[in-house]
Design a protein around this nucleic acid. Structure first.
Length: 167
DNA sequence: CCACGGTGGTAGA
DNA sequence: TCTACCACCGTGG
């Protein structure tokens, strides 16, 4: 019954490294940046449900497109049920930021009707389980400065540069 | 409770 | 410009 135990993990090979995607029974639940540490051994060779294979194809295409600065196109269903109500609100707002565009933490806070929860928005961005596809990297500080990034600021710079965003 | 952030705004040098 | 300081709020210990 533990959702974490039922997650299926699959790699996504990209020019910038091997991402890891994890699926619940309702969709893509997590996406990890390539880690320096190579995972020693991996997933069972058990056949995956057709749904997962279909979702993973969508994830792979969308991720590669995004990394290439192209429109991601069709996304797999996203399982964001792991977050708190507040976090899901923020993530929903993040998904409305189109490619090549940015918003500030304050703007997100206002968009979700909690103008004072600015720092909390930062926290929610950091808790985003599906970076890149849920574009938390498009949130900058109010002064149009870079702000922070859980996955490492290098990634944030890379992703923004790929979309043609100037800081 | 308390402490901590991927903040923002203000004040002063 | 940059630094210092503080109000603010959701999360996790």
């Amino acid at each position: 019954m533990n959702p974490a135990n039922s997650l299926v993990e699959l790699p996504v090979l990209t020019p910038q490294g091997k991402f890891l995607a994890r699926y619940s029974n309702t969709g893509l639940a997590e996406l990890d940046f390539p880690s320096a540490r190579e995972s020693k051994r991996a997933s069972s060779r058990k056949p995956f449900p057709a749904s997962v294979r279909r979702w993973h194809r969508a994830t792979t295409t969308a991720l590669k497109q995004s990394l290439a600065g192209q429109n991601p196109g069709h996304l797999p269903p996203l399982d964001l049920s792991g977050g708190t109500a507040f976090q899901q609100c923020v993530w929903r707002a993040l998904r409305k930021i189109s490619m090549g565009r940015t918003k500030s933490y304050g703007e997100i806070a206002r968009a979700i009707g909690k103008p004072k929860a600015v720092r909390a928005v930062g926290g929610a961005c950091g808790a985003n389980p599906i970076p890149v596809l849920v574009p938390c990297h498009r949130v900058l500080a109010a002064n149009r400065k870079l702000g922070g990034f859980s996955g490492g600021l290098d990634w944030k710079r890379t992703l923004l540069a790929g979309e043609g965003v100037e800081i």
